[in-house]
Design a binder for these strands. Structure first.
Lengths: 344, 344
DNA sequence: AAAATATGTGCAATCGTTTGCGTCAAACGG
DNA sequence: CCGTTTGACGCAAACGATTGCACATATTTT
């Protein structure tokens, strides 16, 4: 119905025509090439500035597509509203922008289907690489394999894909959990419950192993009745009362994320247990809510921003050739335990 | 040091050479043009599929730059980790992706300087339009004006720029606040405190007006000692105790966001006031933490996703010409009051 | 059998830049 | 005064895809 937008496209051709020179001269003048006479150069630059000429990035990219990479990174995030992913995204944006890259962002909504579509779109948008954390849903990896086969640099963060030998940046789940559970033991806990995610995600296994090893190293035995698949608040509130009514009730809880930990906290308080005197609780992430409960939550700081920055660092290395194309760089970011009121 | 990436670029030229035809024929064959013989067409298509050829988006865009817009939207967000902005971003991504657009995302970190740089980068990335919520820092608008002067469609959300007559999608701050404060009055509050942001942001004024009008309409008078500039938890915890020790202490609080409301809740509980019996509290946003406090927070649902979707709808309208280029579409998204435990 | 019509292809220009190479004039050395 | 160097610029090809037009065969019409 309506006319199309103008987008104020002043091109080199326009400048050339206006100043009666060739396009090549304009190009060189704007690139400050010494092979153009001072006067002309300055005249052209002045003219360009006045009419605020901006080079057409599309054309530049097309021209350079043989050698220079397009500085756009595709980023796939399961959800924006989770504190952890938002902080990773912050780190990614920060580092990318510092390195002169832009980011194309998409949300998988934890769905394999959407993840697939996004990969396809990234592929044909000619991004220079992809940074991704898998959807929970994802159990087949054809889309990632297709990217790799096409030579697209790929970096996983957090939720990695064990079946694919790609670069990855993860938090040190094992040590983080081991230290946290050790701390609970040190503070007097003897029966520590573990609320974890479905074991098909790599991070779930590592945290579980950290938990087990902390127990063993401290001479405690593993009681499987204390291990539950539970990774959200609602489930935690459903399961916890039963746990607390066991003959030998837990005196400590470790949860794979703060949402779950908060559910536990709420549950035990409703049952009139005193935290941390009777029950101690430790979460994982250190999100917003960890400081808005009473008492405040002891938790493992997951350092999302650092993970994001590292992911970009690896990807840019791959893209610019600092790292061999087929190299799979594996980095681990250290956690730290943030001690607050839910532990003694 | 290392060789450059391959990105497996199979071009039409490659197909043409391999099959001994011209590039034009390949182009037409892939476009399913009937002017190419059946056999050739199918042979070419098969070959392309097998070698998974993907059209070079860059080249396509360059070619179409005269008439077809580039389907990439630039999005500027102050912070990713705030629940509200994360939900707006979710809405933007969802609608954009549904309409076949991709989003280039950047974070201003509440800084005017960064906002400026981002605008410049978006400009030369040739995005088809920009969706932005201003940084708190921003008091001059030259960067936005430059975008508009260049004919770039621009849509503000949430924090609009009153000095610029651009399209905008905002939440109904006035009515949201009016309804919330009216509800507090209905539940028995007579002295309601208002914690608001610095009044140079449009949303702050509107919420304040909603507060005032709710008071007047219910025959209460405005007491300026109950109005504070305070928009975060730390400040709320600093200010609130003083308020509660006033001769005539407030019996209700309205805060411009949930973070602040939670600070109030925490403060008054430490002073051993019972919520909601002695003090009632209402926030604004309905973020994650609103359900992880005790009692849970009554708050105004801000519907970030809807705002994001509407913003994309307006922008796409502008880009594709459904709306006149110079039209400034102003939309308002209705809020709803979510009643929980901090009110009677 | 000549002319008109299909049918299937290729040529070349185009989008906006970049860049190797050629050109042309002025200046220089001898 | 002629050959060579130098400086300043233009020509044209290239990046990958699209498309109007021309061209060459076949097929049909008079």
């Amino acid at each position: 119905m309506n006319s199309n937008r103008q987008q104020s496209s002043m091109t080199m051709k326009d400048i050339a025509r206006e100043l009666g020179v060739s396009v090549a001269t304009v190009s060189r003048a704007l690139a400050d090439s010494p092979s153009i006479s001072r006067e002309r150069r300055e005249a052209i630059q002045a003219f360009a500035r006045e009419h605020n000429y901006m080079p057409n990035a599309i054309a530049e990219q097309l021209r350079h597509s043989r050698n220079a990479p397009i500085k756009v990174i595709g980023v796939i995030v399961p959800e924006f509203i989770h504190y952890y992913f938002a902080s990773v995204l912050t780190g990614i944006e920060q580092e990318a922008s510092a390195r002169g890259y832009r980011i194309l962002v998409a949300r998988s909504a934890e769905s394999y289907e959407r993840e697939r579509e996004i990969c396809a779109r990234f592929m044909q948008s000619k991004v220079c690489g992809v940074i991704v954390s898998q959807a929970k849903d994802t159990v087949q990896y054809d889309h990632f394999e297709r990217l790799m086969a096409a030579g697209m640099p790929l970096v996983f963060y957090d939720r990695i894909c064990p079946a694919i030998n790609a670069s990855r940046v993860v938090v040190d789940d094992y040590m983080g959990t081991l230290k946290a559970v050790s701390y609970l033991i040190e503070r007097g806990c003897r029966r520590i419950a573990f609320y974890g995610t479905d074991m098909n995600m790599e991070i779930a296994k590592n945290r579980y192993n950290g938990y087990k090893d902390a127990l063993y190293k401290n001479g405690l035995r593993l009681d499987e009745t204390l291990v539950k698949v539970c990774d959200n608040r609602a489930d935690a509130e459903r399961i916890t009362p039963g746990m607390m009514r066991m003959a030998e009730r837990p005196d400590g809880f470790f949860a794979v994320n703060d949402d779950t930990a908060l559910g536990i906290l709420n549950s035990v308080q409703h049952l009139h247990f005193v935290v941390p005197d009777e029950v101690q609780i430790c979460g994982f992430t250190n999100d917003w809510r960890a400081t808005s409960c009473e008492p405040m939550l002891t938790t493992v700081e997951q350092r999302g921003e650092e993970i994001g920055r590292q992911a970009v660092d690896v990807l840019v290395g791959l893209v610019e050739g600092a790292l061999p194309a087929d190299h799979a760089e594996k980095r681990m970011v250290k956690t730290s335990l943030v001690i607050r009121g839910t532990t003694k």
